[in-house]
Nucleic acid binder design. Structure first.
Length: 426
RNA sequence: GGAGAGGUGACAGAGUGGCCGAAUGUGGCGGUCUCGAAAACCGUUGGGCGUGCAAACGUCCCGUGGGUUCAAAUCCCACCCUCUCCGCCA
């Protein structure tokens, strides 16, 4: 959420920033509602001041056993006026909030302008695109042949876009989760948290899923709970409505969670395999930092995510998102993308963003620089560190052998009971 | 699921209609004292919104949302959460 006062003071700057994102949020309605609200507020507060003063007089008269009835009668009228004003103000506030909650974040000045994902820029590349001396298979065929992946039965048991992992596949999934949690907590200084997989409305609003993207989440019947689309939601909301102290910052958290996405609007896209599913696992990195450090922290966060791919020996590149592909909440975003042979291109496997104070303002997460100073909003960041399902797919595809077996990357072997290669049992 | 108790400032804990944004204690901060520290003493110590260059002023906030009243932390209604006991359960 943007700061209403900032919008009021720099409407042209905000308009220009939003234009670059491709969203044409009209500020005119917002600004006129704001104007109206402030003038009403001034009036009603005058009335309240009067009421408070007269109430004191009434109290005095009563104590002195004098007649207060004329004053009371007079105040009845004033009170009714106040009530009318307050009702209207309540509606105004709700309208203003509804508009504010639907305005996207403004891109950081270092983000290049673009009109679609075509304009994203590759900023670095690591490793060589895997070459094969034979015809490589896509991971869904490899996994099915090895009997470690089962999509058919998953669609029987649940539906499309779900999967079963079996045997070494299930173990590999678990190995990846543990490897990443260990890496980030032991070597990168993140504190592990294990979050709830459902959140309430306030949390989903805090990180920006609501009100605009409700249809992307699974909602529980009869409850105001949502299945989380990412651990970002519960973990960022850990400190909602809190004032942290400067000594607490920066806070780094790493969290495993299952992620649930309705994938509304992506019918027909990536229908096979592990790339786009309704439920997948992910290890997520979340940071809470002082504003002046957030851009350095974004670089570090991205490096931490990349480290996972390097250790796994998976070729990747990092793209910087242009102004049109930042999504709703980010001010700046890097997407590490892994080389996926079956796609013949790099596929997003992480997404690292600085939200500045956009989420912090929604979720009311603040910090105090020193005792007695005014609270300020923290900056929040997060990034996948990394998506497990897509990572497992990338391993199967990049490490496949001519005989259909798959080499286990060395760093994962301790997590796999020493297994070096996944082979078919048949 | 049944029965009961309770949600007040950083924490503990008063406050049952007006002089209460809130006693008191602890903690924090500043000071006096001290070579220094402790103790003691003195002072200070919430947030949002609005007006204003600022100083300041106004207003709102005692779990949340409504309501009653000239006036609500205090009365009424709904909801949320916590705790205790019983039952059930991984």
């Amino acid at each position: 959420m943007l700061d209403l006062r900032m919008i009021r003071q720099n409407p042209d700057k905000v308009r220009e920033a939003l234009r670059k994102t491709g969203e044409d949020a009209s500020l005119d309605v917002l600004l006129s509602l704001d104007e109206k609200r402030r003038s009403m507020l001034t009036e009603v507060e005058k009335l309240k001041a009067q009421r408070n003063e007269v109430s004191d007089q009434v109290a005095d008269l009563r104590r002195n056993k004098q007649d207060a009835q004329p004053l009371i009668d007079e105040m009845k009228v004033v009170s009714q006026k106040i009530k009318d004003f307050d009702d209207e103000l309540r509606d105004l506030d709700a309208e203003i909030m509804d508009i504010l909650l639907r305005i996207p974040n403004m891109p950081h000045e270092s983000v290049h302008e673009g009109t679609s994902e075509e304009d994203n820029k590759e900023i670095r590349r690591w490793g060589e695109q895997t070459e094969f001396s034979f015809q490589p298979l896509p991971h869904w065929e490899l996994g099915t042949n090895l009997d470690i992946l089962d999509f058919e039965r998953a669609s029987k048991v649940t539906g499309s876009r779900f999967n079963f992992l079996k045997g070494a596949g299930a173990r590999l999934e678990r190995a990846l989760i543990n490897f990443m949690l260990d890496l980030h907590s032991d070597e990168h200084g993140y504190t592990e948290v294990f979050p709830p997989f459902m959140v309430n409305k306030a949390s989903a609003t805090g990180t920006g899923q609501l009100p605009k993207f409700a249809e992307d989440m699974f909602k529980l019947e009869g409850l105001d709970y949502f299945l989380i689309p990412t651990a970002e939601v519960p973990v960022t909301n850990l400190y909602r409505d809190e004032i942290l102290s400067m000594d607490d910052l920066p806070i780094y958290h790493v969290a495993y969670s299952a992620c649930f996405r309705s994938e509304a609007g992506s019918h027909g896209r990536d229908t096979r395999g592990l790339v786009r599913t309704h439920q997948f696992n992910k290890v997520e990195l979340v940071k809470f930092v002082a504003p002046e450090n957030s851009y350095d922290e974004l670089e570090k966060l991205t490096n931490d995510a990349e480290k996972v791919l390097q250790k796994l020996g998976l070729p990747y590149r990092v793209s910087q998102m242009c102004t049109a592909d930042l999504g709703f909440t980010a001010a700046k975003k890097y997407d590490p993308e892994v080389w996926m042979p079956s796609y013949g291109r790099y596929v997003e496997i992480s997404s690292c963003s600085n939200f500045e104070d956009f989420q912090a303002r929604r979720a009311n997460i603040r910090f105090r620089r020193e005792k007695g100073s005014r609270p300020e909003f923290v900056h929040t960041l997060n990034g996948s560190g990394i998506a497990i399902g897509r990572c497992l797919a990338a391993i199967l595809e990049n490490y496949q052998q001519e005989d259909g077996s798959v080499i286990v990357p060395e760093v994962l072997r301790p997590y796999m009971g020493g297994l070096e290669k996944i082979t078919s049992k048949k």
